[in-house]
């Protein structure tokens, strides 16, 4: 068998195995459920904002004033996806970890590794086939979620997406794909590296915990503007220019906070996707050139992490490691 044939066979096998795996199917259903819940919660939150606005408007009109001072809630369908993106950050990463773990664990655990390695099979075919097959799988999962969102918002919510919004949504899912493939590669390399598979899983979850949940949380809680609901600077009634002057005097603190966030792949992914979807207000309704002029750095980081994960997986592949299970 040629190397390219082996590559395709392994990729196909990966795909076929995963769609029969109960755990994988459970996780994907769980993620779909979460996406549904986050859309529902966002919709009810918006409905509640509109109701509050109407109530306030009614009271103002009754008192003989005009409602000009009230800001009418604006509906942007892509902003409804904040919860979805956050679940992709958390649960999507877990799906990536599980796939990466299973890709190696099933060979080690069932002793099929010995059989595979008795064939003229190189590391490139083995690792490459695993990455390719699982990448297709991740793409399929994200494709289902992508369609689910479009159907939910357009079909049930009766909101039509503009072409630019659809393109932005597509790009957000492309970035999610890269992010998930990174976690796949990361878990795969850990499972290759560790002799004990459960240890590999626990280490993968520990790293996930630190880089996906803890480091971004530290950056968030250290943000001076997050110390007061609605923002510290807003509460002080300060202009953007005044804020910048204040923050300029605390460069060391800000640099430390920023360095914490920069070390997390999740934070780069979040910044990139929040900007693309306009969840962060300053990017809302803006063109892609405006967004990417500002966010290209985050894009480079996310792609860089993913490539690094893949390279390390290839580098760590050795027959001995695959055969080395307790």
């Amino acid at each position: 068998m040629r190397n390219s044939d082996a590559f395709i066979v392994i990729a196909k096998k990966e795909y076929a195995d995963a769609v029969k795996n109960v755990l994988f199917l459970t996780l994907v259903s769980f993620l779909l459920g979460l996406v549904g819940i986050s859309l529902l919660v966002a919709a009810f939150n918006f409905q509640s904002q509109v109701a509050q606005y109407n109530q306030a408007l009614e009271q103002i009109k009754q008192s003989g004033l005009t409602g000009a001072m009230l800001e009418e809630p604006q509906y942007y369908p892509l902003q409804m996806l904040r919860g979805t993106v956050e679940y992709l950050e958390i649960i999507g990463a877990i799906i990536g970890i599980i796939l990466g773990y299973l890709a190696i664990a099933k060979e080690k655990g069932a002793n099929t590794a010995r059989l595979l390695l008795s064939r003229p099979l190189g590391g490139v075919s083995f690792v490459g086939g695993k990455i390719f097959g699982n990448s297709l799988l991740i793409l399929s999962v994200l494709g289902i979620i992508f369609l689910f969102i479009i159907v939910s918002i357009s079909g049930i919510g009766h909101v039509l997406f503009s072409q630019l919004e659809l393109l932005k949504l597509f790009l957000a899912f492309l970035f999610s794909f890269i992010y998930l493939v990174f976690f796949f590669c990361f878990a795969m390399l850990l499972t290759l590296f560790f002799r004990s598979m459960p240890h590999a899983l626990i280490v993968a979850f520990s790293v996930w915990l630190v880089f996906v949940l803890i480091i971004p949380q530290i950056g968030d809680t250290m943000d001076p503007d997050n110390q007061v609901p609605g923002g510290f600077f807003n509460s002080m009634h300060m202009t953007q220019d005044q804020q910048k002057r204040v923050i300029a005097k605390f460069k060391r603190y800000e640099n430390f906070r920023n360095a914490m966030e920069e070390s997390s792949v999740e934070k780069h992914y979040e910044r990139l996707v929040f900007a693309t979807l306009g969840i962060k207000d300053m990017y809302n309704d803006k063109g892609l050139s405006f967004i990417f002029k500002d966010k290209w750095g985050d894009l480079v980081w996310v792609i860089g992490y993913c490539i690094m994960g893949a390279i390390l997986s290839f580098a760590l592949f050795k027959n001995g490691r695959l055969l080395n299970s307790p």
Partner: peptide, 14 residues
């Protein structure tokens, strides 16, 4: 579901 807050917002005690 019970508070209407996004998942990551629940990680900030404030």
């Amino acid at each position: 579901l019970t508070t209407g807050q996004n998942p990551v917002a629940l990680l900030n005690p404030v």
